[in-house]
C-alpha cells in the first residue's frame, strides 16, 4: 500500500482489474468506493477459489473504485455493475430511485442492513500528539488545522461531518443551533476541502499539511501500518459514528448478464467466516460476532452511535446537511 499508488486509483474513474478474463466463463463487475481496493483484491481471489471448488466454474471478477457518489452515478448512467459495494446507503438509494435497477427495499435483503462490515471515524495525529488532541472538542480550538474532505463530493467526508455533529448534539444536550456553531468552527479550521478522502489523507500524510486528519478507521490503520507509530498516532474520540457501508446486487444488470447466482453468492460470502476474516484483516469491523471477538484486540473500544440517532434516514441527513442551501453550505455563506 503506497499512498501515491492509491492516488492514481482515485484519479481514474474506472480502474478495472482484468484478471485473465478471456479464460473465464463468466465475469462479474463489483463497483465499489475508494478505500476498499485492497480488501476486494484479497476477497475476490478467495471467492474465485471458493466458487471453482463449489461449482467447477472458473469465473473472473472485475473491480472499479472511485468516490462513492461518483460510482453510484456511473451505475445509474449505465455501467454494467453486477454488485455495488458503496460507502453509504444514500448512494444505493439513489441508484434505486433514479434507475430502477434495484427495488426500493434493497437494504432489507441482506443481514445488518446489508452491511457485511462496518467501520467508524477516528482522528489521526502526528506522533507524540504535539497539539494535544484528545477529542472532537480540540478540533475547534484556534490554531488547529483540520484535514477533512468536502462532504459535497466525498462519502467519507459526510460520515466525518455526522460524527462531529453527533458529538456536538451530545455535548450541547441536543441543542441544534449550538451544534451548528460547533461545526462552523470546526470547518473554519479546515484549510483545504479535498474532493475525496484519499486526497485529504495524502495532504496530511505525505505533504505534512494539518494537525489532525478525520479519517475512516481502516484508512487510519493502513496509514499506521505503512508509516509506523513513529510518524502517526490514532486518537479515539469519546464518541463516534458507526459507519455502515452497504452492498447490493444490481438485479436488472445481473438478469441481463445471467450472473444472478454468482452475484448473490459473492455478497453472501462476505458474511461467511472466511469473508469476515478477510474483512477484519483489512481493518474493517466484522459484523459476525464470533469473528469480531477474535479480532477484538485490533479494534479499540469506542462509543458508537448510528445514523439513525442523528437523522431519520440518510435521505433526511442529506437533505438537512448536504443538499444545496443545507447546513453545510450555510457555514460558508453566512460566516
Amino acid at each position: 500500500m503506497k499512498f501515491n499508488m492509491w492516488l492514481s486509483v482515485g484519479l481514474l474513474m474506472f480502474i478495472v482489474a482484468n484478471s485473465n478474463q478471456a479464460l473465464a466463463d463468466r465475469t462479474i463487475l463489483n463497483v465499489s468506493y475508494d478505500p476498499t481496493r485492497e480488501l476486494y483484491q484479497a476477497f475476490n481471489q478467495e471467492f474465485i477459489r471458493y466458487w471453482q471448488d463449489k461449482t467447477g466454474e472458473k469465473i473472473a471478477i472485475r473491480q472499479s473504485h472511485g468516490g462513492s457518489s461518483k460510482q453510484a452515478r456511473a451505475i445509474i448512467d449505465g455501467v454494467p455493475a453486477d454488485v455495488a459495494t458503496l460507502a453509504l446507503a444514500y448512494d444505493i438509494d439513489a441508484i434505486s430511485e433514479r434507475s430502477g435497477l434495484i427495488p426500493a427495499g434493497w437494504q432489507q435483503r441482506l443481514p445488518n442492513n446489508s452491511s457485511p462490515y462496518t467501520s467508524t471515524i477516528v482522528l489521526l495525529v502526528r506522533a507524540g500528539n504535539p497539539k494535544k488532541i484528545k477529542d472532537w472538542d480540540d478540533l475547534i480550538k484556534p490554531g488547529i488545522a483540520v484535514m477533512t474532505p468536502n462532504p459535497k463530493t466525498s462519502g467519507g467526508a459526510r460520515w466525518n461531518y455526522l460524527a462531529a455533529w453527533g458529538f456536538a448534539l451530545k455535548k450541547y444536550n441536543g441543542d441544534e443551533s449550538e451544534a451548528r456553531h460547533f461545526l462552523a468552527r470546526l470547518y473554519k479550521n479546515a484549510p483545504i476541502l479535498d474532493s475525496g478522502a484519499r486526497g485529504s489523507a495524502i495532504n496530511f500524510i505525505q505533504r505534512g499539511i494539518g494537525d489532525v486528519l478525520i479519517s475512516w478507521e481502516n484508512e487510519a490503520f493502513l496509514a499506521l501500518k505503512e508509516y509506523g507509530p513513529e510518524k502517526f498516532e490514532i486518537i479515539i474520540p469519546s464518541i463516534s459514528i458507526l459507519t455502515e457501508p452497504p452492498v447490493t446486487v444490481i438485479d436488472k444488470n445481473t438478469d441481463k448478464h445471467g450472473t444472478q447466482d454468482i452475484a448473490q453468492a459473492y455478497l453472501e460470502y462476505l458474511y461467511s467466516k472466511k469473508g469476515q476474516e478477510i474483512v477484519a484483516r483489512h481493518f474493517y469491523r466484522p459484523s459476525d460476532a464470533e469473528t469480531a471477538r477474535e479480532y477484538a484486540h485490533q479494534f479499540p473500544e469506542i462509543n458508537l452511535f448510528t445514523i439513525n440517532d442523528v437523522a431519520d434516514s440518510w435521505q433526511q441527513a442529506q437533505q438537512i446537511h448536504f443538499s444545496d442551501g443545507g447546513l453545510f453550505d450555510k457555514i460558508y455563506e453566512y460566516q
Binding site: S69, K70, R73, N150, K152, T153, S195
Partner: peptide
Amino acid sequence: PLLIITKLEQYDYTG
C-alpha cells in the same frame, strides 16, 4: 467546474 461536479455528485443534473 468544481461546482458543476459537486452538483452532479448530488444527482442534481439540471443544476
